[in-house]
Design a protein around this nucleic acid. Structure first.
Lengths: 166, 166
DNA sequence: ACTGAAAGACACAGACT
DNA sequence: AGTCTGTGTCTTTCAGT
């Protein structure tokens, strides 16, 4: 069935996406629940090739996940904070420990290794300022090897999209 | 915390979510394509109440959107940059103009109004450094009223989730 | 690679407890 | 609010072009 083993598919494009693949991705990015029939009619194809193309993009990891987005404020996570972290020591072991801890903190929804004066950038969500203060003082600050910490508060969301393919 | 407009109900929870609603949200956040039957069996309910609860959460805006996530590198958007922007003037009109322009730039996938020395934080994706340089010089810098600009490069993704409800 | 048809799984609505 | 049952629509497979 499959030509290549999809084990080591972490970096490079698995194959060249043609215009029809990109059209499918454009539609799926906006609405994960669009029907195969609907896609098929919009790109002037029958369901079978559309279904096969989606399957191929799922198997090759181009399509990573279908997720449901929830309204921040309505689930009581109205406060968003960008948090900068630098560690005291920069050896492999302490870095790995930090990463493990971050992955266990559900308030942290994103974490990036960044260039510049800080080591990491975190996106944190909390119900309100009290909850964030508690998180900052009792969880973040308590991480071993923690160096400097700086919080930048998000006052408004101007744009938020997951549309990588345009 | 987000500002409220008088005409929309964007801020407050529409109603109290019970444990079953939260259980449904937890499953949907991880997989938008999970079947109602599957959810029903996992939370020990039949399909009808699950279906009704999902519908209610969609209608009230708690569930915002079902999206498909695509692998950055595999669609040739391997470079992620955090970009800080300050405007020269801070009147309402120039702010609105900036927001309009940002929404038209498909390289910008997120934009927040932030506290601190800069006005906005942008998350930008590009194929490579050449593409980002072109975006920076020919698009971002050319925006009228543009003040200071600072780029922070993402060297590694430690954590990325959309799981707001835990 | 694609079309068209056909089987099985599913969402969704109705009658009822 | 919930279960059970039925109907129409969908995904998914298969034979054929």
């Amino acid at each position: 069935m499959e030509k290549t083993n999809a084990k080591d598919n972490a970096t490079l494009p698995a194959y060249a996406l043609d215009d029809k693949d990109l059209a499918i991705l454009r539609l799926l990015q906006q609405n994960a629940k669009i029907t195969v029939r609907d896609i098929a009619s919009q790109i002037h194809l029958s369901t079978t090739p559309v279904h096969e193309r989606i399957k191929r993009m799922e198997d090759s990891g181009i399509i990573k996940q279908y997720v449901t987005l929830v309204d921040h404020a309505k689930v009581r996570k109205g406060l968003m904070v960008i948090c900068y972290v630098s560690l005291k020591e920069h050896n492999k072991k302490s870095g790995a420990k930090f990463i493990k801890t971050i992955n266990e903190l559900h308030e942290v929804i994103e974490c990036y290794n960044i260039s510049g004066e800080f080591d990491f950038m975190l996106k944190v969500v909390a119900e309100n300022m009290d909850a964030y203060y508690d998180f900052h003082v009792n969880k973040l600050s308590q991480i071993e090897n923690m160096g400097h910490l700086q919080s930048v508060f998000v006052m408004g969301i101007i744009k938020q999209t997951h549309q990588l393919v345009n």
